[in-house]
Nucleic acid binder design. Structure first.
Lengths: 210, 210
DNA sequence: GTTAAGATACTCCCGAAGGGAGGAACATGT
DNA sequence: ACATGTTCCTCCCTTCGGGAGTATCTTAAC
């Protein structure tokens, strides 16, 4: 009681899934990988630790089942867990954080060849195509009635739109960057900047600071 | 020699800065925070460790200076370091990874109130405004000749455009989401999904898989 | 001239997270 | 009968985040 147990956002991500229905840990790990992974990526090993913390805090109960001689643990949310989830949902979440190694390489491309820079942009375009195919697959399976948790569709659509918009934006950028780099000299260190981009951004009128 | 020392992408991010000019560790930490932080965020404590690894691998040299009685270490890249950087730049980087707690809360908003969901979107809109002001400030200072490393402007513009496009996309999404959530009933669990979003995505024609 | 605030220049530490290896039981297809 | 794949985890090692702590130097205010 002296120091509060302090659950992480990852704990609440798992708790959010438990609020939908009870899950076995393995199922939970798969589901995390299929959905939350796109905007809250976590390692599989963590997913096996989190429910234990939830139980320790009284937010979930563990039920031990057996399939033949193999044990499995199914977790169920408690009323206290639902209250904790609601409390967490009412607190403001932090803004988007990006981690983008290919862009890091573009940033330092003056120390490599033009071909290296172009190859990194091509890698990004590949990523866009793969991700886009996944997005389209998701949308089609939901429209076909095949998606899990159709009762959650309003929330899923909100997040899904964010993710597709992100994919599209990366695609548009990569296409533009492709053209820009194609016009670079062989040595990217001698490339001339496209100042029109800066002018466009600089010309924006900012909202008065509150 | 048996096991290669294996430098991380963060090591190369620091090495990339050293390829521009020599830096003191404190300067390095500040610079990381001002630039790379937007697409390769790392804790300050790491920034103090990385240059030591670079020196251990012969990619940089450390020079000890004193300002009065206070010591500081200035790091300089070596020719071997430049070669290593070029090798790393030629390898494909990984695609964008997102971490977005506020979106996580929107995803689970059925377990809270509509006001909670709206508040999270408002938080996101605040983030967009703050980030946009930073973007505009950057562009203006570069156009005014005040930005650091004008010789790197071609690369900076490429990355800068990505970051502003990302900010804009988040802003457009948040505005849309704001309207959607405003139409929800008090209990988000009873909200009807906007199926037109799914139809639009599902209707896309996919490029044939290579 | 004194003093307080702020910038510089780090080190240390702990807990969270990443990520791969390993292993046992069950399910399937051939 | 055998092999492959899926379920269902545990263990461990390393990296990372992030705050606390320490000390020195600079600047501007009083």
């Amino acid at each position: 009681m002296s120091t509060p147990p302090e659950l992480s956002s990852t704990s609440f991500a798992v708790l959010g899934l438990l609020a939908i229905r009870p899950w076995g840990t393995y199922e939970l790990a798969k589901q995390l990988d299929r959905s939350l992974n796109y905007f809250w990526p976590r390692a599989e090993s963590k997913v096996y630790e989190e429910p234990k913390k939830l139980v320790a805090n009284g937010y979930a109960r563990a039920r031990r089942e057996t399939v033949g001689r193999r044990a499995r643990t199914v977790y169920t949310i408690t009323p206290k867990g639902r209250r904790a989830l609601a409390t967490w949902l009412a607190l403001p979440g932090s803004g988007p954080a990006l981690e983008f190694e290919a862009l890091l390489k573009v940033f330092f491309s003056e120390h490599g060849s033009r071909a290296d820079a172009a190859a990194n942009v091509a890698t990004i375009r590949d990523w866009v195509e793969r991700r886009n195919a996944e997005n389209v697959g998701f949308a089609r399976s939901y429209l076909g009635g095949g998606g899990p948790f159709p009762e959650r569709l309003a929330q899923i659509v909100l997040v899904g739109r964010f993710l597709t918009e992100f994919t599209d934006m990366v695609g548009r950028w990569a296409e533009w960057a492709d053209g820009v780099i194609a016009d670079w000299p062989d040595n990217p260190a001698e490339a001339r900047p496209d100042l029109s981009v800066l002018h466009e951004i600089a010309a924006r009128v900012l909202a008065p600071t509150a």
